[in-house]
């Protein structure tokens, strides 16, 4: 680990001032940052510990929806009475089976989590390049992207909450770089596929900080997240899908938002899966068709064709789960 300056602001304005300039890093609970610093995968001149910025905590009703401070822990989200109408979020917290992570990990840490790509974590940068070669392209890409991988980025987005939040139409608040500056944008626009190693996985610029997530009113919509986990315990999904459905009185889909996770460098919105659903009641056959539609345009790499099947299954099962039709041990 390289030496770095440590700062612990107590307000958002202080935090963004400290985050100005290149080479600064935000520390929330540090569950992922500490190992990255220890291995020098992330080099930083200043670590800004935001754990004392109390304005970034709390889960509150706002404008008919719910605002979640990004310092909320995964456990806060799991047990908040305000979020019971957003079951796709609880599906995610239940999938993170380690109590330590649930108690310490934060929503912001998840949304900004750097890729788990083993090339990135071995020091080859986000794009995994070595002497001009793309290691994920020619090497072992079993865990890499099956969508959005035509450019140099082959990793998959690590966030587990983003698919569910995007499926709910969540907006995020960004502050900085000027003190008290703020803007809101849809969460799907928060993510960015880098084209060079100097670009990040989000649109955050130096001096900017993600502070809050706002969920629109649930309004009787149903939702679910389905993650395919290789291990029945602490593990990262091989693929996931989140679905939020607006159903009419006859159970037909008025509107559907389907978002896949861990299959592309960003959370992956599937309009084609949604198209299959609209106007129809969700049946196992329709869920299967939506899954097929979701992966029709997949572009697997040399070693990850199996992830196409996993993505397809995730969509199908998220839809069945959202409509209480997921049965048996599956």
């Amino acid at each position: 680990m390289n030496p770095f300056e440590y700062a612990r602001p107590e307000s958002e304005a202080e935090a963004v001032a400290l985050l100005a300039g290149e080479g600064t890093t935000v520390l929330a609970s540090g569950m992922d940052l500490m190992p990255l610093l220890q291995k020098s995968v992330v080099a930083t001149s200043r670590v800004v510990d935001i754990s004392r910025v109390d304005s970034m905590r709390g889960i509150d009703p706002v404008n008919g929806g719910v605002t979640i401070g990004v310092l909320s822990t995964l456990e806060d989200i799991a047990y908040s009475p305000l979020l019971t109408e957003y079951p796709s979020l609880k599906d995610v917290t239940e999938g993170i089976r380690a109590i330590q992570v649930q108690q310490n990990g934060t929503l912001g840490g998840d949304l900004c989590h750097l890729p788990n790509c083993w090339y990135f974590r071995s020091g080859y940068g986000l794009l995994g390049r070595d002497n001009g070669k793309s290691l994920p392209e020619i090497g072992d890409n079993r865990y890499h992207a099956i969508f959005g991988n035509s450019g140099p980025a082959k990793f998959v987005s690590a966030s587990r909450f983003a698919p569910a939040l995007i499926a709910w139409g969540a907006q995020v608040r960004i502050t900085g770089p000027e003190p008290n500056a703020e803007k809101w944008l849809p969460l799907e626009q928060f993510y960015h596929t880098p084209k060079t190693d100097r670009q990040g996985v989000t649109v955050l610029e130096p001096g900017q900080l993600l502070t809050h997530v706002w969920l629109p009113p649930a309004e009787l919509q149903v939702s679910a997240t389905y993650e395919v986990l290789e291990m029945k315990g602490l593990d990262w999904p091989l693929a996931s899908a989140a679905a939020t459905l607006d159903l009419d009185d006859a159970g037909r889909v008025r509107k559907a938002t389907i978002v896949l996770g861990h299959v592309a460098p960003t959370p992956w919105l599937s309009l084609s899966a949604a198209d299959v659903l609209v106007g129809q009641p969700v049946t196992p056959q329709l869920a299967h068709a939506a899954g097929e539609a979701a992966v029709a345009e997949a572009t697997p790499l040399s070693e990850n064709a199996y992830k196409v099947r996993l993505a397809q299954t995730s969509v199908k099962r998220a839809l069945l789960k959202a409509t209480n039709q997921l049965e048996g041990g599956l």
Binding site: L135, I138, G139, E230
Partner: peptide, 25 residues
Amino acid sequence: RIMDNASGRFINANLRDYKLPRLGD
């Protein structure tokens, strides 16, 4: 152990990717 042909490295040499069973398994 996953050896990566491209880099020649033991690419999953960490306890996240070197997958030992969890209690539920």
